[in-house]
């Protein structure tokens, strides 16, 4: 009995001694560290082609963006397949202080559109446990600075009230980086126009947007985006927006080159008012350049 007690004491004391455990692994003595980290760089930038990605610029980052769309390929030789003119351009300044909330403003030549948006990274995909997806909220407001082209004909100015110039887009972007190379996101989008063109048009539209990228090398990727218009909002002939592109990253720049059937650059333009189609080569070349500054 006493012997048992002695042995028990010995075993107890020895097992409590760190000397016996993990003799070969000093770091192991510090205990298991469960590494839970946010997944970074699901996409190269805050835009894929036209669509917003789930990404928000890093903390204290100012993103200066130039987006350019040429004319359609099917304009033929005379317009040199769209390169001659009729381009649409957006210049944007977008900033994030904390790497989660982004504020942006921009001006688009097509429809003389002024835009301002808020984007918030609600949830980050984590490796080693935690959220399997990233969720980003996006809300944007558009204000056209066009004059009413039909004012003389109709005898009234449809933009007499400033609110008639406004439209809005909201989306919840849900995405996942499946591997170092492959990322995919889906976003339900809600678009509202204060004023629509025709009496039969609806003020609201719902679109489901999907976007994906596949990295070819460390610094370049193939991208694809598609916006499916889920509701009937107009009797006019519009088409789903579809774009295929190539991302190239060069230090502080991201250069994106692509073809898309959308001429507009903003959510209220490309999601719902794309008038060209791929089947008759109504597609155009476009590029985005992003230059970031740390402020």
């Amino acid at each position: 009995m006493k012997l048992f007690r002695i042995v028990a004491t010995l075993v107890l004391v020895w097992s409590a001694s760190p000397n016996l455990r993990a003799q070969d692994d000093l770091l192991g003595l510090l205990g298991d560290e469960k590494v839970k980290e946010p997944v970074v760089a699901s996409f190269k930038g805050t835009r894929l082609i036209n669509f917003h990605t789930l990404e928000v610029p890093g903390r204290r980052t100012l993103d200066f963006r130039i987006s350019h769309r040429f004319g359609a390929f099917n304009s033929g030789w005379y317009d040199f397949f769209g390169l001659d003119g009729g381009a649409s351009i957006r210049l944007g300044l977008e900033y994030s202080y904390d790497g989660r909330l982004e504020v942006g403003i921009g001006r688009t030549s097509y429809e003389k559109m002024l835009d301002g948006f808020l984007k918030y990274r609600l949830l980050r995909q984590m490796s080693g446990g935690g959220s399997p997806v990233s969720v980003t909220l996006f809300s944007s407001m558009f204000y056209t600075m066009q004059k009413d082209p039909d004012k003389a004909v109709n005898g009234f100015d449809k933009y007499a009230q400033a609110t008639n110039r406004m439209s809005f887009a909201h989306q919840v972007i849900i995405g996942r980086k499946f591997s170092d190379r492959f990322s995919l996101q889906i976003a339900p989008v809600y678009i509202h126009y204060n004023l629509v063109d025709r009496i039969s048009d609806k003020n609201d539209a719902v679109v489901v947007a999907a976007a994906t990228r596949f990295k070819v090398t460390k610094r370049s990727a193939i991208t694809l985006e598609y916006g499916w218009r889920a509701t009937q909002y107009s009797r006019e002939k519009y088409y789903d927006s579809l774009g295929v592109g190539w991302d190239i990253e060069t230090g502080g720049h991201v250069f994106q080159l692509f073809v898309t059937n959308s001429f507009g650059l903003l959510e209220n333009q490309y999601f719902t008012h794309t008038t060209n189609q791929w089947s008759n080569m109504g597609i155009r070349l476009g590029f985005n350049i992003s230059r970031v500054f740390t402020l």
Binding site: V40, R60, T61, S127, D180, V292, T294
Partner: peptide, 20 residues
């Protein structure tokens, strides 16, 4: 200091998702 540099460090140079 630069968030983008940090991203490139992890994604392109150190490949920290593979070698944490």
């Amino acid at each position: 200091e630069k968030a983008l540099m940090q991203e490139h460090f992890n994604e392109n140079y150190m490949e920290s998702s593979k070698f944490p």
